[in-house]
Amino acid sequence: MKNLRSILMPLAIVLGILLPQAHVLSPMMPFLIGSMMFLTFVTKIPPQTHGYTFKIEARAFVASLVLIAALWGIVELFGLPREVLLGGAIIALCPPANAAPAMAKMLGGSASLALKIFLSGNLLACFSIPVFFGYLTGADASLSEIAMKIFNTIQPIISIPLAFALGLRAFYPELADRAAKFQKYTMFIWTFSVFVIISKASFDIREMGFTDLWNSGKLPMMAGVSLVLCILLFWLGWFCERKRRPIEGSQSMGQKNTTLVIWVSTLYAGPVVALAPTCYVIWQNLVLTWMSREKTRERMLRGQEKKNP
């Protein structure tokens, strides 16, 4: 499955760039996100140390707010376009990705802990994104109005799959166990989602004019801020939890549910802002590919040491 991911993800990105016509599939995004949410939520969660999940998520949330404040200061200091702040903010506020538990397990961490962080992070995002992103984007409306609009957009995608998964787990546990077996196939839904996302971005760039976006500096700035945030978030997740759970911290803070925030930023901030989390998809998968290769190389070295003590 790991080798298949390393093949499918670059293929999805390349095809998305070459086939902008596939942007017509964008209305499927809420259903794709909801499907991935359900398959992750329905997974049976083993018990973990009480309160530790909250501490990890609280540190991640505080770190995200600090990054937004720092980015806001840089934008104001250097007179950068407002889109840079909005693009960076939506990345920082983005909850953990569905694939974070599987990746944490592959790297030698606890999949169950990463899953609990995923659950709490996505529930927190239901409120944090509407409030903070709504405040940054709501120039023409009151905070309560724009926050409620964003909340009404996000919460059904998270709450409905969660309620359905918890109901199935409570009343029909056997069916829930069967559904949970399909969780590993979320990779294929995620790959298809990436294809649609990149295709939509490719279409938007062509519509807005690649040369105009590049000459204005907005496209390179969006790519640059997403790259810096990607490296920072993975590193901060490791640094904040380095004494106890560095793998889970890194994956939970760095690996983002970009499909959700790309959709939200497109609706409420425009296609230019959506370029930032779209670029993050590319940087994120490059980082994850590097991590998986490093882990594979480490295992191979250990195997050689055992054979040649």
Rank of each mutant, 00 (worst) to 15 (best):
D212I: 11
G209C: 10
F133N: 00
H50N: 11
V196Y: 01
P96R: 09
L166H: 07
A92Y: 01
T258L: 15
L227S: 07
T296C: 14
I91K: 03
L19N: 05
F192Q: 06
S292P: 07
L107H: 09
P20A: 04
I231N: 05
V272Y: 00
R244V: 13
L77M: 11
L124D: 03
I7Y: 13
R178A: 13
L229C: 02
K295P: 04
V273R: 05
K105S: 15
L260R: 01
T191A: 14
M28L: 15
F54Q: 13
M222S: 13
Q304R: 11
L229H: 05
P309W: 09
Q183M: 11
V66E: 04
N122R: 03
S26E: 11
Q48A: 11
P161T: 04
S226W: 01
E207Y: 10
S202G: 11
T191P: 07
R245F: 14
I13W: 05
K105M: 13
A114K: 02
V264C: 01
I197T: 06
E305V: 12
I189T: 05
I91Y: 04
Q48E: 10
D212E: 14
F188T: 10
N98S: 12
L85H: 01
Y268I: 06
M106Q: 12
T43M: 12
F118Q: 05
M28T: 14
Y52P: 03
Q21Y: 07
A276E: 00
L11G: 08
T296E: 15
A274W: 01
L18W: 12
C279M: 15
K307P: 08
D212T: 14
L67R: 02
I146Y: 00
A274C: 05
D140E: 13
M36H: 09
S120L: 14
A99I: 13
R297F: 12
L236C: 07
G134A: 02
F118P: 01
L275Q: 07
G217Y: 08
I117G: 10
K295W: 09
T137L: 03
L65T: 05
A141D: 06
A201F: 08
G87M: 01
W263F: 13
W238R: 11
F31G: 10
T191Q: 07
K256E: 07
W190V: 14
P46W: 08
S6W: 13
L162K: 02
V225Q: 04
Q284Y: 04
K2I: 15
I33H: 03
A179E: 01
P101I: 02
A139T: 14
F54E: 14
Y135D: 00
F239H: 12
P161W: 03
L286F: 11
P220W: 06
I146E: 00
A269S: 10
M221A: 15
I91T: 05
R206D: 11
S110L: 11
V287E: 04
I74S: 09
F132M: 08
L107D: 10
R5I: 08
T153Q: 11
M208G: 10
L80Q: 02
I129C: 02
T259V: 08
P156I: 02
V225W: 09
G134R: 00
A180Y: 04
C126I: 15
L19M: 15
A269T: 01
L71C: 05
V62Y: 02
I45A: 09
P30E: 06
T259P: 10
F41M: 06
L19V: 12
N285V: 06
V273Q: 00
W290A: 15
N98R: 03
K184E: 07
F127E: 02
P81M: 07
I205D: 00
L11K: 08
V196N: 00
N285E: 12
